[in-house]
Amino acid sequence: MIRGEEFAPLPFFSPMHIKINLFATLRKDRFDTDQREYPTGTTVLAVLNDLVIPEGEAAIIFVNGKHAGPDHVMLDGDTLSIFPPIGGG
């Protein structure tokens, strides 16, 4: 038995489905919108690292339409939207 298999059925290790939306310059060489799987307990920062987005470039982060920081822990079914610094008015 390989290590990990015995843990597989445990909910703690079941993958979460996260919808990710990127905007403006962050779309370049990435995507507009994607559905990805991450282990339970994944933070926003871990997703940023996975997408190779430097923290400074992710100026505005929403989880389900509410402002969130890099330490925010994601839940299954969340929508994560990431914006570079933008403005207008």
């Binding site: 403006a24 310059t25 570079p84 610094p85 207008g88 008015g89």
Partner: peptide
């Protein structure tokens, strides 16, 4: 960067 590239409609 942002305003020149995308305008206010960003």
């Amino acid at each position: 960067q942002a305003l020149p590239a995308f305008g206010t409609n960003v």
